[in-house]
Amino acid sequence: MAIVHNVEIVWDELMDAFTSGQSDRVYFLDRYTGEIFFVPATLEDDEVWRQMDTGRDRFLEIPRFDYGVERQFMSGFIGAIQDSGLRSILDGSLAGKKPYGNINEILPFFPDEEERLTAMKDDFFASRVKNWLEENNLFTVDTEAMLSSRM
Results as ranks from 00 to 15, higher is better:
S20V: 04
S20W: 02
G21D: 09
Q22N: 15
Q22K: 15
Q22S: 13
D24F: 11
V26L: 09
F28P: 03
F28C: 07
F28L: 08
F28H: 04
L29H: 00
R31T: 07
R31H: 09
Y32W: 15
I36L: 08
F38G: 04
V39A: 07
A41M: 10
T42M: 15
T42R: 13
D45G: 06
D46Q: 13
D46V: 14
W49I: 07
W49V: 08
R50K: 13
Q51E: 13
M52I: 07
T54P: 08
D57S: 12
D57I: 14
D57A: 13
R58A: 06
R58Y: 07
E61T: 11
R64N: 12
F65C: 04
F65I: 01
D66H: 01
G68S: 08
E70G: 01
R71S: 11
R71P: 09
Q72E: 11
Q72D: 12
Q72G: 09
F73M: 00
M74Y: 04
S75E: 10
S75K: 07
I78K: 02
I78E: 01
I78A: 01
I81V: 06
I81G: 01
I81D: 02
D83Y: 05
D83N: 11
D83T: 05
G85N: 15
L86R: 01
S88L: 09
I89Y: 05
I89F: 06
I89E: 08
L90R: 00
D91M: 10
G92C: 06
S93I: 02
A95S: 11
G96D: 04
G96T: 04
K97L: 15
K97F: 14
P99G: 04
Y100V: 06
Y100D: 07
G101Y: 11
N102E: 14
I103P: 02
E105W: 12
I106F: 07
I106P: 01
I106A: 03
F109C: 10
F110E: 03
P111G: 03
E113C: 00
E113W: 00
E115H: 10
R116L: 03
T118F: 08
T118H: 10
T118K: 10
A119Q: 09
M120K: 11
D123F: 13
F125E: 00
F125V: 05
F125C: 01
F125D: 00
F125K: 00
A126R: 08
S127Q: 14
R128E: 05
R128T: 03
V129T: 05
V129M: 05
K130T: 10
L133T: 03
L133Y: 05
E134A: 14
E135G: 11
N136F: 04
N137D: 15
N137Y: 11
T140L: 03
V141S: 15
D142K: 14
T143C: 12
E144H: 11
A145Y: 15
M146S: 09
L147W: 05
L147K: 01
